[in-house]
Simulated assay, not measured.
Amino acid sequence: MLIRRETPADIDAIRELTNLAFDNLPYASGQEAELIDSLRADEGWIPELSLVEDSVLGHVVCTRGYIGEVPALGLGPLSVHPDHQRSGVGKALMHAVLGAAEARGERAVILLGSPDYYSRFGFRLAAEFGITPPVAEWAPHFQARLFGEVPGGAFRYAEPFNQL
Rank of each mutant, 00 (worst) to 15 (best):
I131Q: 00
F121M: 10
A103I: 03
S55H: 14
P82Y: 09
E48W: 14
P77L: 04
S29Q: 08
L39E: 02
S114K: 10
K91I: 13
P160F: 09
C62H: 05
G88S: 07
A158H: 05
D116M: 12
G74T: 04
M1T: 06
Y157K: 00
A154F: 15
D12K: 12
Y157P: 04
A96T: 08
F121H: 01
T18K: 01
Q163W: 15
E53A: 09
D37H: 07
V60T: 07
R104W: 12
A9Q: 14
D37Q: 14
Q163K: 15
P8H: 08
Q85M: 12
L112Q: 01
P151N: 08
P8D: 14
E159W: 12
H95N: 15
Q85P: 05
T7N: 04
I14Q: 02
G74E: 05
K91V: 13
F129M: 10
S29N: 11
F142V: 08
H59A: 05
G90D: 00
D116E: 12
G130N: 06
G105A: 08
N162D: 15
E6L: 10
G153K: 04
G68Y: 04
G74H: 01
E128R: 11
M1A: 08
G65S: 07
H141S: 10
L2E: 11
V52K: 00
I46K: 04
A13Y: 09
A154C: 10
V61G: 01
L164P: 03
L2G: 06
L164H: 13
N24H: 14
L20Q: 15
A96S: 10
E32D: 09
I131A: 02
Y117E: 01
G105K: 12
M94Y: 03
Q163F: 13
A144I: 03
G68C: 09
L112K: 01
P8C: 11
N162T: 15
E102K: 15
G122S: 06
N162K: 15
M94G: 01
M94R: 02
L146A: 04
E159C: 05
M94S: 06
I46S: 06
G153T: 10
R124E: 13
P8T: 10
H59T: 05
K91R: 10
S38V: 03
H141M: 14
C62L: 13
F123Q: 00
G148A: 15
E32K: 02
M94N: 02
G105W: 07
V56R: 03
R104M: 15
M1S: 05
S114Q: 12
Q143V: 03
R64V: 03
V60Q: 01
V109L: 02
A158Y: 09
E53D: 07
S114H: 11
E149I: 09
T18H: 06
A92I: 07
Q143E: 08
Q143T: 04
L51F: 11
E102H: 13
P8G: 09
E149L: 07
E43K: 14
L125D: 09
A9H: 14
D23P: 00
P133I: 10
H81I: 04
G113V: 05
E128F: 11
A154Y: 09
L2F: 11
P151T: 13
E34I: 05
E149S: 14
S119T: 14
L73D: 00
G30R: 09
A139V: 14
R64H: 10
P77F: 05
A13G: 03
A41N: 12
P47R: 06
E6V: 08
E53M: 03
V97Y: 00
